[in-house]
Each structure stands twice: as C-alpha cells, then as structure tokens.
Design a protein around this nucleic acid. Sequence first.
DNA 1: CTGTTAGCGCGTTCAC
DNA 2: GTGAACGCGCTAACAG
Lengths: 333, 333
Amino acid sequence: MATMKQVAERAGVSISTVSHVINNTRVVSDDVRQRVLGVIAEMRYIPSAVARSLKNDKTNMIGVLVPDSSNPYFAELIRWLEDAAFEAGYNIILCNAQGGAAKQAAYLRLLMEKRIDGLVLVVSSADRERELLTRAETVPIIQIERALPGLEADAILAGEPGGAAQAAHHLLELGHRDIACVAGPASLPRTRERLGGFLRAMEEAGRPVPRERIVHEAFTSAGGYAAFNRLLTSDRPPSAIFATSDLMAFGGLWAAREIGVRVPEQLSVIGFDDLDGVGYTSPPLTTVAPPKRDMARLALAWLVERIRGGQAAQRRTALESRLVLRATCAPPR
Amino acid sequence: MATMKQVAERAGVSISTVSHVINNTRVVSDDVRQRVLGVIAEMRYIPSAVARSLKNDKTNMIGVLVPDSSNPYFAELIRWLEDAAFEAGYNIILCNAQGGAAKQAAYLRLLMEKRIDGLVLVVSSADRERELLTRAETVPIIQIERALPGLEADAILAGEPGGAAQAAHHLLELGHRDIACVAGPASLPRTRERLGGFLRAMEEAGRPVPRERIVHEAFTSAGGYAAFNRLLTSDRPPSAIFATSDLMAFGGLWAAREIGVRVPEQLSVIGFDDLDGVGYTSPPLTTVAPPKRDMARLALAWLVERIRGGQAAQRRTALESRLVLRATCAPPR
DNA sequence: CTGTTAGCGCGTTCAC
DNA sequence: GTGAACGCGCTAACAG
C-alpha cells in the first residue's frame, strides 16, 4: 500500500504538502494540488488511519458491548447506534459479552488496547460487573438501559416502570383480575425492572400479583413457550399474561394456540420490546415499545459530546416507553 | 494513558525490556520481569494496539459489511462471525450498507483507511457493486452468500438451489399441484437464487410454476403479509406457498389466519432462513435452513488463512441447506 | 540477560 | 506558498 512519502516523491513535493492537500489544512497552489491529487489517484493512495490515530490520539472508533447481538432487540438497537455513529464519523466495534465473564473481560481489555474513543455499554447480566469495568475507567462511556452501580458514566434508561405500568393499567381497565407474569431470569436487570414496574403498578392499583402467578424462564421464545404452557395448563389459568419480552410472548402465543386457548378471546397477552416483526404474530402482539431509536441516538449524541470533552457532569435520563395496542388484548370472558 | 516509556523509566529498565516482558519475546530475568509487571499494574498501563498496528502492519480487525444488521438473518450470521473472529483474535467492525450506495462506498473507504486485515462481504443489492469494490482490491475478502461477478475473492455460497429444491419436492410429494411463490424484490440476488432454485426444481418435476403464481414484495413481514393476502384473496388461491424468506412467511402466516385460511389444513407454507424464533410461529414454520453457523465459521477460517498468506488459489464452495420439517405443511384437501 | 536505535505513516511546528 | 524535522508508542534488529 502506497505511503504518503511515496506520493510526495512521485509528485516532486514534500511530504507535508501532501498532508496538507489531503486535509485541506493550509493553502496550496492550485497546480501543486492538482499534481498531488493526480498522483494520489494514480497510486491508489489511501491515508492510514492507524498512523493518523497514533498521531492524533483518537481512533474514531467506538466499542459497542451487548449481551447478544443476534437477539432482535439488541440487533435493532445496534442498527440505530450504527446509524448515528456513522453520521458522527465513528465506526463500531461489535462485541458480544455472552460467552462468559472471561470473554467480556477480554473484550474490554482489547477495546482499551485499540484505544476506542468511547464505549457503549448495554449490560444485562449483573455478574461481576463492577470488577470488569474498572478496566474501562479511562474511556467515555454511555450506558444504555441499565446504569451499573458505582460506575460514573452517563446512562440512558428505558424509562421503566412507566411502560410496564401502562401494560398493567390496560389489562386492569379491560377488566382482567387474574393476571400472570412471564419473565426472564430474575438475575437479569432488564427482567427485574420490567417485572418490578408491572408488579408495582398492580399493587398500587390494589391488585397485587401473587407469587405463584410469576413464572421465570429463559429470555427466549422457547422460554416463553414453556412458561405459558405451565400457566395455561394449570387448573386455574390466568385471563391475561404480561411477558417481559416479545420473544417470550411470541413463544407463548404458540403455546396458547397449541393448547387451544384462543387469543385474545380467552387470553390477553402483552409483550415488551416491540420487535420489528411483532406486528405480524398471530394475532399481532400488543406490546410495550421502548424508544429504541431515540435511545440509540441520544446515547451516541451524549457519548460524542463526552468524547469531545464538552461535558463534565454525569447525566442520566429515562426515555418513556409506550404501549402499542394491537390485537392480543380483550376483556375477559 | 501511561506509555511504555514511562513504565520503563519508572521500573528503571529500558523500553525494549518492557516490550519483551509484555510480549514474552525474549528471556528476562525473573526479578526484572516482576518489577516491570509491578509497575505496569501500578500505572494501569495498557499497550497501544494503534502503535503496534503501525509497526506490525496489521490491525487484527476485520470489516463486516452487510445490507442490514438488524435483519434477523444477518444478525444471526454476524453473531456467528463475531464468535469465530473473537476465537481467532480479531475484532469486528460492523458496517451496514443499507442507506445508499454512498454510504457503502464511504464505509469501504473508511475500512481501507483503518487498514482492516480482512473483509467479510455479504452483499445483497446488485447495484453498482463492481464499481464500489474496486476500492477494496487490496484486502483479503471473503464473500458470503453471493459471489460478485468479476471480484476475485473466496466465496461461500448458501448452496442454492439445493434447499429450495427440497422445498419443492416436499410440497410435490405431499400432493400439491397449485403452488405459489412469494419472493423478495427480483433485484436481490438472494431472492433470485432461492426463487430460481425452486422454480427449476418444479420445472424438472414437470410442474412449472406459472408466472402469475409468483409474487414479489418487500423482503419483510409486511411484504409477506401483502403478498399472501393478494394470493389468498384471489378467486383461485393456491394450496401451498413457498416464501423466499422466513420474515415473509411470517407475515404471510398472519395474513392467512386473518383471512381464515387454516395452516396447514388449507394452506401449506414453507419459509427460508430458519430464523431463531421460527419454531414458535403459529404453527411452527417448516423452512429451508441455510447452515448459517457453518457458513460463518468457514468464512472466517478462509479469511484468516488468506490474511496469513497461506492461500493462493481462489476458493468457492456451496454449503447445503436442509429442509426443516415443522408444522406448516400437509397434503392438500 | 539487557540497552540503543531505527523506523512504521502521519501531523505539525518552525523556518524559509 | 513550500520543506525539514520531530515525535506519537511500539517492535525488532543490532550491540554489548
């Protein structure tokens, strides 16, 4: 790969002149500029961002660490993040934490070595989080969805329990009294917040959800299938189920259909995430929609501000989720 | 951020000694090593991959360019790629081509500037592809799913038309005679190959699919919904539909249910992709499963080989897809 | 077993 | 309007 020096020689100018025509950083006579540009094209010269980074002490790369990028929820979030990052002139290094604490630690280390300019953190597991993050102390960090205790970094929360509360109220207003919850593993903060928000709203409405109406399973379609199955085949099935993720609701919908429980006539279902395809489940899923796009955009905006050094105080905000009414809810029979 | 030089000074050794204890690249007396290690820990020194890259002329980063990383199919592929990349010591720079030819070109340029060691290309649109790729000529490239004409690079194809043919045979064996196809935009190579494979198999079986039984729509749930709707509300609805993507089949399933067409009793449906959640559609979707994981692993293995310079000749292979039987197919009434 | 030194490719003073 | 030269942080000869 051609280097700036070679370009300079071939063009019969100094290396610094080449640099300046590339970066438009000082006046260059027109004929020299044309000549240099010509040589650049001819030699297919492409400036080295790594040399540039070494010099400037910035890489224009940001790390994005998520639990599992193939989970549609994160995939959508990442997509928006990528959009905003590209807009702002940054590239994204994609890291999946799933695969053990060791992998997560290794990634954090690698990202620091790579001298990323900033880090987007979407943490789910609460395991050993603090310890792992001490490594990251020196980069600007933006946390999405969950603020790690003790980590001084901006955070954008999903605005729970607002969304979950809306779900509760909707079900209550429809007249449901026996409402169950299908949730992911209790160890996941995301589950806890969504479930917690729902339970609290129910309690405040004077309809606390009894313990046995809460089922924890894996955060997947399979988990939802299992959970709904258990609930619906008991002697006293609930008339409505709130699931803490669309994936679970999705699996649950199939469980219901398989068992012969009609949705929404015999069972109302509310999910959480508003995944892309979820308008086409059978029936289309009523769900709580976190403002994924806004979260991503704001996250990147804040991160960039911090990278540019324009922000001192720590910032937190919670963006409101909203209930998207589709076709899985109806009054109980 | 601490530098190697500072570590050396503080430890009272030369800079090269520090380098060597870090990289285990030559013998260092135990006490010196301990001292250096101590200082490194104390100063929280982290070596700079940027400087290292400049010196070694390799970045351990590979670019992954896909049409849209939030599409579950690509999301899953990316997840496997990331896995394999991490294993091999590479980081992934995620790039979405969707957003216009300009964005794609910009990304390619950026990746070259960043001096990625290799590039994984998952191209869908055929637009101006060649032109854009001339930029990338100098990096090792592995193409997945589609080999761009004129691009000298290894390629791993999805093994069409094998999978689509299996779908055709399955439907035929069940006794279906009036089979329709729901496909993405004809401009997408992926669509063309899958659809083409299916049509050819039907033809070879002596049951060519008439033109009017082929419906093109967007490569999404919404597109599938629209396409199925059109087909099923015509005066002579088909008894089976082959969709070139699960997303489309997914939307189609809902369309069928909404119209009151029962699957699989009145309509058989086969999708394509075997997306993660698709075992939980209503009913669980029979689909053609491309070996996403194997494709990703092989892609990365080949790419790494090429990066290491161990491979000269251009390689191509097609991994076979297989039909996954679930619950959306039955004999026609 | 350890230290000195020359670049890697670029941006940026400083001098002309 | 242009060039020379230093240094970003690191690796790898080469010396000792």
